[in-house]
Design a protein around this nucleic acid. Structure first.
Lengths: 114, 114
DNA sequence: GTAAAGCGCTTTGTATTGTCAAGTGCTTTG
DNA sequence: CAAAGCACTTGACAATACAAAGCGCTTTAC
């Protein structure tokens, strides 16, 4: 019964969680506060974002620093390990620019060979 | 109000959908049938898998070939564009091997600086 | 000098999404 | 000749994400 542990499978499980890649991409541009991440990511709801950030912090991908409680000011940034995810984002970036286009309607996406 | 289109954001939306990266990783090892993908991916339910495959086919990331209807035999494989996602999987792979470990309990994962 | 906007969240419903279990009709393997 | 495998579908259920409102307080904006 022993499912042997596969780190690649585990990290895909992590990265495919909704908003995680978006959050990492946002933080690669530099440290940010809660609402700034929400804006950069676009369309995430704050309850979900709070929970994702908490999880990523617990895992050691990002770190949270409370700079002041009142007025509230928090700083999220990538840890050393988290920062190394830049290669993943970079390869998504170059794939996307080569293969992702808008279709004729302008509403949907298509993947082209180009 | 015009949200300008960002292909990178759009492709993250695609790749973060549950099971998508696992499916692509499985198909990078070669073409496979429906149940073989399910086994490689591990833990996906067939209803969800069917719908993910249909979507990926519609986008042009994978192609489906029905080899015989009875007995049923189908072949899914990556398109040219889909195959180029190997760089994404490869960078996840090398990040994972460097940074993902099991914690002491053996039940949870942790991200280490290493 | 006061109203509005911003900060980092939490809370309460509701909608969307994924899951479980079972089942289909047929062939090949044991 | 029963059991297992193929590629799925269906329907009821559970987990997840959502929108919207609100908190207590400061900093801008008029």
């Amino acid at each position: 019964m022993s499912e042997e542990f596969c780190p690649v499978h585990a990290s895909i499980d992590l990265l495919q969680e909704k908003w995680v890649l978006h959050i990492i991409r946002a933080l690669l541009a530099g440290p940010r506060g809660f609402n700034a991440i929400a804006r950069d990511v676009g369309g995430v709801n704050t309850a979900t974002l709070a929970q994702r950030l908490e999880k990523l912090e617990g895992l050691g991908v990002i770190s949270k620093e409370v700079e002041s409680t009142m007025p509230p000011r928090t700083r999220y940034e990538l840890t050393e390990a988290g920062y190394e995810l830049q290669d993943v984002i970079a390869s998504i970036d170059s794939w996307a620019r080569k293969h992702i286009k808008l279709d004729e309607t302008g509403h949907d996406i298509e993947v082209v060979a180009g």
